[in-house]
């Protein structure tokens, strides 16, 4: 089990406290391609934040690759994000003044990898994405699909335990969306665990398992895979 959530609860404090995640139990195996679907306000973004070690939860336990993720210091969280998780975002989140290869290499910069080594690895990833000829282009000079592939290359460069994708096709047209999903399937075939948060049924249909969340609860009981 690469992801195991046990009785996760999360409440946003306020005048009227908002209980966004209610006793979430979820297991995801290594090598799965999973979609988390739900309407906006269902709590799926909060769940993604917790899975991505971007946010804390109030009670329960979250194991990522057998590491208990709970009450981590900011530095420890940053380190785990860097090594274990590859993020893919809806709006790509590339740094606009850095070219493709620099963007892809950035996670390794924070690992203290040498510049030469970084650029070599980044170039490998770009080649894998078929973007070798775009290595020195700025994000502004790339199409949406190319930007998302650069972002995926960046997510892969640290060889993470899982890829977390937040509406990865949300800003793309249908053809490009299909291509990107094709790419995710291909990565999954190579053994990568991928969790995609989406509200697009087509994206959901392209995955192997759909986890529906509404009103802070997982809708259908999950079949336990061995």
């Amino acid at each position: 089990m690469i992801i195991r959530l046990k009785d996760i609860n999360k409440t946003y404090p306020g005048v009227v406290p908002l209980h966004v995640l209610k006793d979430i139990n979820l297991d995801i195996d290594r090598g799965e391609l999973v979609a988390i679907m739900g309407a906006s306000g269902s709590g799926k973004s909060t769940l993604l934040n917790i899975l991505g070690i971007l946010d804390n939860y109030d009670s329960g336990e979250y194991y990522l690759d057998y590491v208990l993720i709970k009450n981590l210091s900011e530095n420890k969280a940053a380190e785990l994000r860097n090594r274990m998780i590859g993020f893919v975002f809806q709006s790509f989140n590339l740094i606009s003044y850095k070219n493709a290869i620099e963007n892809v290499a950035l996670p390794l910069f924070y690992q203290g990898v040498s510049r030469r080594q970084r650029n070599r690895l980044a170039m490998e990833q770009l080649e894998r994405m078929g973007l070798a000829d775009r290595a020195h282009h700025l994000p502004g000079e790339l199409s949406g699909g190319q930007k998302q592939r650069v972002a995926i290359a960046r997510a892969l460069i640290t060889n993470p335990s899982i890829i977390l994708a937040d509406e990865p096709t949300g800003a793309l047209d249908s053809t490009t969306s299909r291509d990107v999903m094709q790419l995710f399937r291909q990565l999954n075939d190579d053994g990568m665990t991928i969790v995609i948060v989406t509200h697009d049924p087509n994206v959901g249909a392209a995955t192997n398992r759909i986890i529906r969340i509404s009103d802070g609860r997982i809708e259908t009981p999950q079949p336990i895979t061995v």
Partner: peptide, 16 residues
């Protein structure tokens, strides 16, 4: 803020 957020998400520590 957004850029710093990205950097933090992909592993930049506060110190960085």
């Amino acid at each position: 803020v957004h850029e710093i957020g990205i950097r933090r998400a992909i592993g930049a520590k506060r110190r960085n």
